[in-house]
């Protein structure tokens, strides 16, 4: 029974990891910007939801606030921080340091406004019910899995069937050629930040109502996103999605054999194993530079 319980919990965690990691992978894959502040996007979405919901403004306004906060943060960060650095031919590392710095600032600002302690949003959906004898599952677990399926399905449709989605894939392949086609790489990059940031929102909201939040949660989110991007194969959205699920399941099922403080180590054991054995990741293309 414990294995089933952990598998379901792992599936829920993995689904949320997949959403967050795919957002990062989409941004990194198409713009080559190491958006470390993606974790801060998660924090902003989660705390905006927590703040508005806590103020009693209802579920839909809370979701809208989380979505708007996340998208505005992602797009403005690209426009006001990354774009100027790139315009002055700043290096990959310069962009990374700027992103890291913004992440720290956001963490501290959120801490100042909402406090540094642990907070949760209590909803009737948070309470677990006994699904089969000895296995307790909260309705939010199914909502997490359903949300992930819907969002990632919609993302695949967007990337394969719309011109904007194709342009995002084109930008990932060759930014210079994008200009030759007559497209504007900066506009496409802004779309990547908007879409990548939106994907974080359901994960942030569900996390706020399940495991809870603190302002430093962004670092964990970022590390998982990075690990899933590498394990899935850099540039592969489908690979990152699978890797997110795999990491969530592995973290949870690891509790069968190790203590809970070691679960994060499991993520990194998997990451190192992939780096050594299969550096191209689950679905990435092997490349030589």
């Amino acid at each position: 029974m414990l294995a089933i319980q952990l598998a379901i919990t792992g599936l829920q965690t993995g689904a949320l990891y997949a959403l967050t990691a795919v957002g990062f992978s989409l941004i990194f894959g198409s713009t080559r910007i190491f958006h470390f502040a993606h974790g801060a996007t998660f924090v902003i979405a989660a705390y905006f939801f927590y703040g508005v919901f806590g103020a009693g403004l209802g579920l839909l306004p809370s979701i809208a606030a989380a979505g708007l906060g996340a998208v505005a943060f992602g797009v403005l960060l690209d426009r006001l921080v990354y774009a100027p650095i790139q315009r002055h031919e700043g290096s990959f590392f310069t962009v990374f340091v700027a992103s890291f710095g913004v992440g720290i600032v956001v963490q501290n600002l959120i801490g100042m406004v909402f406090g540094r302690g642990f907070v949760t949003v209590n909803t009737p959906l948070s309470r677990s019910v006994e699904m089969i004898p000895g296995v307790y599952v909260s309705p939010l677990a199914w909502i997490a899995i359903l949300c992930t399926a819907i969002f990632l399905g919609a993302l695949q449709f967007f990337l394969r069937r719309t011109h904007t989605g194709m342009a995002l894939r084109a930008l990932a392949d060759n930014p210079e050629l994008v200009r030759t086609f007559g497209l504007n790489p900066r506009m496409i990059a802004a779309t990547a930040f908007a879409v990548g940031s939106v994907l974080v929102v359901p994960a942030a909201i569900i996390t706020s109502a399940t495991t809870g939040l603190n302002p430093a949660i962004g670092h964990h989110v970022m590390l998982i996103s990075l690990a899933a991007t590498i394990v899935g194969g850099i540039g592969s959205v489908s690979g990152t999605m699978l890797a997110g699920l795999l990491l969530g399941l592995a973290e949870s099922l690891a509790l069968l054999v190790v203590d809970s403080q070691w679960t994060e180590a499991v993520t990194f054991a998997i990451l190192f194993a992939f780096i050594i054995i299969r550096p191209a990741g689950l679905l990435g293309r092997a490349t030589a530079h």
């Binding site: 894939r169 084109a170 392949d173 030759t180």
Partner: peptide, 10 residues
């Protein structure tokens, strides 16, 4: 353009 003016993944 110079080189292969196509996007490999498309």
């Amino acid at each position: 353009p110079e080189g292969r003016g196509v996007f490999p993944s498309l």
